[in-house]
Every structure is written in structure tokens, then in C-alpha cells.
Amino acid sequence: MAALNRKRRNICIAVLLSLIVLVILILILAFTVFKPKQPTITVDSVSLLDLNISLNAARFGVDLNLTLIVQLTVENPNKVAFQHSDGTAVVSYRGEEVAEAPIPSGRLSPDGTEKMNLTLTMMADRLLAKSELFSDVIAGELPISTFARLAGKMTVIGVFKIRVVALSSCDLTIDIRNRSVEDQRCEYRTKL
């Protein structure tokens, strides 16, 4: 009887030690190999698809239609998938949002990359209140900014859910005379 109790006790100790080693191994993997890295959203290029300008010198007004093509790359450097919800890309002129395009939700595989092309058309009615527009058009340069935001989550080992927000912003200038995008400066951030 004592030998049977000792055998049961040894089996329980072995099972308990095995579980402890397994939990430690899972934690080590979760914080090393599966440690979350920051997904990035990068603006590869911004190009001018359409630009129509007409000046009304009598009222110092400008009628402006502008369409941009923004090429984005979303990269997931993690060993787990990145599931992202709908995002947005925005164009602003001197702090005023003038165009917006949705970024559809999706799933990036581990170590995956996804390229996106977004078309952003400036809404001329939102520019009417900006007194600087007339002088910017006369000067031949239109300063604008783009901003893209993508929020999502990663699930590590099916247990740990980590929320991530990838952000990208670019300041650029539209050269009205050459009908081109000039002087593009971008910044990329991620929040874990």
C-alpha cells in the first residue's frame, strides 16, 4: 500500500513538474520568439492623378479639384497574424480635413506584407473657408498633409491579445505649375 501511494505521489509530482516546465516554456516563447513587434504602415508614394484650378481674381477665389493616389505598404514583422479593422487615410490642407478614403479591414499573415492604392479626392467646398488658398495657388505651391491610421490586434499563442495602432503621416507640397508632388517628408509611428 505504501509503495502504491509513493508511486501515485511520484506520478503527481512528475505531472506537476511537466506542467510547470510547459508553462515556463510557453512564457519564454511568448516573450521572445512571439514577442510582438510593431506593424508599420508606410507611404510608398503620393502621385497626382488630377488637378484642375480656376482663379476668380475679382473675388480672390479659387475653384480647385485635386485627386491623389497614395500607395501604402502595411508590414507585419511578427510570427503571428495581425488582424486589423477598417482604417482611414486623410488629406488635410492647413489643418482642415479635405479628403478621406477608407482602408478596408483585413488580416496580414505572419511576416506578411500588403500593398494598397488609395484614391483621395479633395472636397473643394471644404477649402472655401481657407483664406490662404488663393495666395498658395498664386505662389504655385499647395502644402498638404496625409495621415493614415490602422488599428488591430495580434493573438499570441491563442491567449495573449495585444492591441496595436500603426500610424503614418506625410507633409508634402503640390507644385501647381509642374503638376507634381514635391518635398515629401513622412513619419511612421506605432502604438502597442
Score class of each variant (00 low, 15 high):
residue 168 S to F: 01
residue 74 V to Y: 02
residue 175 D to C: 03
residue 97 E to Q: 13
residue 73 T to Y: 01
residue 87 G to A: 08
residue 128 L to C: 00
residue 50 D to G: 03
residue 183 D to H: 15
residue 130 K to A: 13
residue 151 A to L: 00
residue 133 L to H: 05
residue 177 R to F: 09
residue 107 R to A: 02
residue 178 N to T: 13
residue 140 G to Q: 02
residue 105 S to I: 00
residue 42 T to A: 12
residue 68 L to N: 09
residue 12 C to M: 07
residue 132 E to H: 04
residue 111 D to G: 07
residue 187 E to A: 14
residue 49 L to C: 04
residue 187 E to N: 14
residue 95 G to K: 07
residue 169 S to A: 15
residue 124 A to L: 00
residue 181 V to E: 03
residue 9 R to C: 14
residue 111 D to C: 07
residue 129 A to N: 08
residue 60 F to D: 08
residue 113 T to V: 13
residue 106 G to S: 05
residue 169 S to E: 12
residue 83 Q to H: 11
residue 24 I to Q: 11
residue 52 N to H: 10
residue 74 V to M: 12
residue 77 P to M: 07
residue 192 L to P: 10
residue 146 T to A: 03
residue 68 L to Y: 04
residue 133 L to I: 04
residue 52 N to S: 15
residue 153 K to Y: 09
residue 121 T to K: 15
residue 132 E to W: 00
residue 72 L to E: 08
residue 46 V to A: 09
residue 67 T to L: 06
residue 18 S to K: 00
residue 20 I to V: 14
residue 55 L to W: 04
residue 11 I to V: 15
residue 73 T to K: 14
residue 138 I to L: 13
residue 39 P to T: 06
residue 8 R to I: 11
residue 189 R to A: 15
residue 9 R to A: 13
residue 45 S to V: 05
residue 100 E to A: 13
residue 81 A to N: 10
residue 105 S to H: 09
residue 122 M to D: 01
residue 180 S to D: 08
residue 74 V to S: 12
residue 117 N to Y: 07
residue 135 S to C: 00
residue 55 L to C: 08
residue 101 A to Q: 02
residue 21 V to F: 15
residue 192 L to K: 08
residue 100 E to S: 15
residue 150 L to C: 01
residue 159 V to C: 06
residue 52 N to M: 06
residue 76 N to T: 04
residue 31 F to K: 08
residue 153 K to W: 03
residue 5 N to M: 09
residue 137 V to C: 03
residue 28 I to Q: 02
residue 169 S to W: 05
residue 140 G to Y: 02
residue 183 D to M: 12
residue 62 V to N: 07
residue 47 S to T: 15
residue 64 L to S: 09
residue 180 S to I: 07
residue 62 V to D: 07
residue 181 V to N: 04
residue 60 F to Q: 14
residue 143 P to M: 01
residue 177 R to M: 10
residue 96 E to F: 09
residue 43 V to T: 11
residue 154 M to F: 04
residue 13 I to N: 07
residue 100 E to H: 05
residue 99 A to Q: 08
residue 48 L to C: 05
residue 163 R to D: 14
residue 34 F to E: 05
residue 41 I to P: 02
residue 172 L to V: 04
residue 41 I to M: 11
residue 90 V to M: 10
residue 8 R to D: 01
residue 91 V to I: 15
residue 21 V to W: 09
residue 130 K to Q: 14
residue 81 A to W: 07
residue 184 Q to F: 05
residue 72 L to H: 09
residue 1 M to A: 12
residue 35 K to W: 08
residue 147 F to H: 13
residue 67 T to D: 10
residue 92 S to F: 02
residue 83 Q to C: 04
residue 43 V to M: 11
residue 122 M to V: 14
residue 101 A to C: 03
residue 157 I to H: 10
residue 56 N to A: 10
residue 130 K to E: 13
residue 69 I to C: 12
residue 132 E to I: 00
residue 97 E to R: 15
residue 152 G to A: 05
residue 135 S to F: 00
residue 84 H to S: 08
residue 59 R to L: 13
residue 29 L to N: 09
residue 8 R to S: 11
residue 190 T to A: 14
residue 76 N to V: 06
residue 162 I to K: 11
residue 35 K to S: 12
residue 15 V to C: 15
residue 11 I to N: 05
residue 54 S to C: 05
